[in-house]
Design a protein around this nucleic acid. Sequence first.
DNA 1: ACTCTTATTGCACACGTGTGTATGCGGATC
DNA 2: GATCCGCATACACACGTGTGCAATAAGAGT
Lengths: 337, 337
Amino acid sequence: MTIKDIARLAGVTHSTVSRSLNDSPLVAAETKEKIKKLATELGYSPNTFARRLVTKKSNTLGVFFLSRAEINFMENFGTQFLDGIATASSNNGYDLLMFTMTRDLSNQKSYIRLCQEKHVEGVIFIGMTSDDPHLAEIAASQIPVCIIDFELKGDHVGFISSDNDQGIRLALDHLWQNGHRSIAHLGGPEVSPVAMIREDAYRRYMTSHGLESKIKILRGDFTKDSGYRRTQEMIRQGHLPTALLAANDYMALGAVKALKEQGYKIPSDVSIIGYDNVLAGEYSDPGLTTIGQNPIEMGASAVQYLFEKLKGGAPSPIHLINPNLIIRDSVRPIPIR
Amino acid sequence: MTIKDIARLAGVTHSTVSRSLNDSPLVAAETKEKIKKLATELGYSPNTFARRLVTKKSNTLGVFFLSRAEINFMENFGTQFLDGIATASSNNGYDLLMFTMTRDLSNQKSYIRLCQEKHVEGVIFIGMTSDDPHLAEIAASQIPVCIIDFELKGDHVGFISSDNDQGIRLALDHLWQNGHRSIAHLGGPEVSPVAMIREDAYRRYMTSHGLESKIKILRGDFTKDSGYRRTQEMIRQGHLPTALLAANDYMALGAVKALKEQGYKIPSDVSIIGYDNVLAGEYSDPGLTTIGQNPIEMGASAVQYLFEKLKGGAPSPIHLINPNLIIRDSVRPIPIR
DNA sequence: ACTCTTATTGCACACGTGTGTATGCGGATC
DNA sequence: GATCCGCATACACACGTGTGCAATAAGAGT
């Protein structure tokens, strides 16, 4: 079923059909209607390959995501990113091609080259790592790029992230409103940009609320075990805060474990708040109050950035998505001392 | 950069170039080499749209996955399925188009229709649900379909799943070898096919090992809370087994919680083994011994099925992937009584 | 030396769609 | 009534690649 078939049945040429279906003003309203009706009756759908060949527009976005079996860092975020990306893309009539970034980075084909070959108009990266050998090439890309949770500067590259600063403020506001004044921070490693942003937000909040003297930072590495050990050390030193704000949920769960082992009760003895809203926090005991990112919205924003770029606009290269506070059972109000 | 450009530079016609790059025997070995060399030097890559237009082959697979923000049932499996699918697809020179199955099933376009429009040669579904209104249409599909974790019969539809029967045997073997003879089963709801398969495997194993009298089944609904409550009831009744095999990890974690609350120690008092290898089990206390599915391999198998179908073969419509036992700290050997 | 065969290349068309230009037709203007 | 204008449609070509068939050249056989 092609436009030529429709043309024959309607007694016109294929050009008239083409123009009708594309709503060209060059064709009489009457015949246009007639042809459109005929097309839908026949269940016609255009051959995208022929169309793309002549228009030189692919209407296709690409998404690369990290493929590492042993690293589960993405939790269920991965599918939610993809969810947001796929629906936003589809809503705008764009196809979505999916690629993986494999682990042996040596014989890996250049991403950008691959995109050119596939005629991808814009591309999104999920799970980019700083050891990737193609970073410079991506930064110099001529086709619009958007990277989730990894900052890279370039004329046509955007950056989508959760607003970590605001997330920390949400968490600390919650503790503050529950009467907590002695709040320690279980931070991530210094090599992690996200960890540093969260720690910095903690420092600023404490200072601006007159709690500068209460600032206390335990340095973990985002693993549950590091949270467990740093908390053990803190317990031994004997200075327990009333609340602990962890830079991610896994460390928070490690802290819970260490405290429970020493006979402390959560949240009656110590309140704990995590970050990321991983599933383990939902199923832990007590349920972990935490800050949730909005991965679906992040994915949609990435697509949004690409479309604005494609339209010739100059969207902000950085988009921070609002996180939200998820209240469970690990924070308890205390009277102000 | 087209084959015409190469033709001009090589002093031949575009047909000769086309034949050379496609390794046709109709062209002299000498000129073939020359042209191939020229093409790589110029960094030529064929225009897929033109090629697909004339060959009528898209070299494209499609993947639909369920898009439901509030349902996290896929955990990190989703990305791993996609990982396996994307790499297998790419290794065979196929592109992968991604679509979502949106929640409002009413105004949803027919999946198969969409596949035809996009010229998808084969399609994979992840997260299919039994309330989807397009099931009949999928079953009757003329293009090869493969569904992960959802059985549907049709001439061109395949079914990929973890081998639940073997998984249960792995778990019970592990308990058996650790001396356990009194093993209860915390099963899933009767409406779940997977739950029934797992329960049946439990029954057969117990019977074939002379433990028919020890068969005891608690009926949960796959949630942590149901595991918690069924276990509480069992404790109240006073007949504790030495080991508990749960039909999924969340229920296992619920059981752990109930037992710990009553002062029992895991695994010294009761051994517990879960199923699915969700992340929460890795981070729970104690680490949950469980059965892991191999989602990457499942994804790759789905692609494999489609390719065999496309080659005209008749692959088995059912593929069961071997699960594996993941030993952590929730099972402990006991002396045989 | 002539014919026949075979190897190699060119020619021409096709795939389905979009678009610039030409053509035809009706009506309005003078 | 001749001219001009505008509207609607047809014609023709293009996009880049693949392929059946014809054409040419070279070599082999008699």
